[in-house]
């Protein structure tokens, strides 16, 4: 039993701090270990529960958020479909900003530590969460990944969610901003096909712009569709291959890393 949140300790998701000697695996089942006794009193009671189904997740997300705020950590939740270039964007960003910020990465994938190994190669502290059959990260997994990570104050934490444009939309992790990444090879109507993700994000990074000459992708259309779902959405166009647009992304990050306020 975990003393922090009371979760029990059997397997379905696991967390590893990459590049450290020991593995801290943190596992869960959803076993129901109580007995189903059959009482013979037949008094029925109506309980007005009125409880949000995601109450538990949202509570833990707010705890994470408080932790980030207290330490002035810019926590970003990177969401996208698989293959949009989240990990490539991170590799470039971590390498280019190495001397300016202390960065941390939490990688979410169903299996393997391949992405975390790529991040580790840039010299960044990284934890890999394997969700097993799970299709998204939740606030609880982040809480435990943070315990092994111990990020310092005034740093940036990139949380790379499981590549999935549907499920992660519902789960608040405690992040400051949600960044949705779309690549020009995906089709410009993605924002209205998967509206929830674009609705809940604050920034949209459009990646692989170097491929624009080869694909029928309209920059105007994708923005128009995305604004239908979320009129406040900001756009940053980048190519991680050519480096085009990356200064704009770095500028955005710099503006978001708030300097500690003096009282």
């Amino acid at each position: 039993m975990c003393a922090t949140c009371g979760c029990d300790a059997n397997a379905s998701s696991s967390i590893r701090q990459i590049g450290e000697d020991h593995d801290h695996s943190h596992d869960h089942t959803h076993d129901h270990t109580h007995s189903h006794g059959h009482g013979h009193s037949h008094s029925k009671t109506i309980v007005e529960v009125e409880k949000d189904v995601l109450y538990e997740n949202n509570l833990l997300a707010q705890r994470n958020r408080g932790y980030f705020d207290a330490k002035n950590i810019l926590a970003l939740n990177l969401v996208s479909s698989p293959g949009s270039g989240k990990t490539s964007l991170l590799e470039r960003t971590l390498t280019d900003l190495k001397d300016q910020f202390t960065c941390y990465v939490i990688e979410g994938d169903q299996q393997t530590s391949r992405d975390a190994d790529r991040i580790h190669a840039t010299g960044t502290k990284v934890a890999q969460i394997n969700t097993g059959k799970g299709c998204h990260l939740d606030a609880h997994m982040i809480l435990h990944a943070l315990q092994g990570m111990k990020p310092v104050e005034n740093s940036i934490l990139f949380i790379e969610n499981v590549g999935n444009l549907v499920c992660p939309a519902m789960f608040d992790l405690g992040e400051k901003e949600r960044v949705v990444i779309i690549s020009v090879t995906e089709g410009d109507d993605k924002p209205i096909k998967y509206p929830d993700m674009f609705h809940t994000s604050t920034v949209c990074v459009i990646n692989k712009t170097d491929l624009l000459p080869y694909v029928p992708f309209s920059m105007e259309k994708v923005k128009e569709y995305a604004r239908q779902v979320n009129p406040d959405l900001q756009f940053i166009e980048v190519s991680c291959t050519s480096g085009e647009g990356l200064p704009q992304w770095y500028q955005w990050l710099k503006e978001k890393v708030l300097l500690p306020q003096s009282v």
Binding site: H30, H32, H34, K51, V53, L54, C135, H136, C167, F171
Partner: peptide
């Protein structure tokens, strides 16, 4: 299939209540 997580949360709330 985040619906499974949602159902698990509903079961959890039910058991606690």
């Amino acid at each position: 299939m985040h619906e499974l997580s949602i159902v698990m949360s509903i079961i959890d709330i039910t058991e606690k209540e």
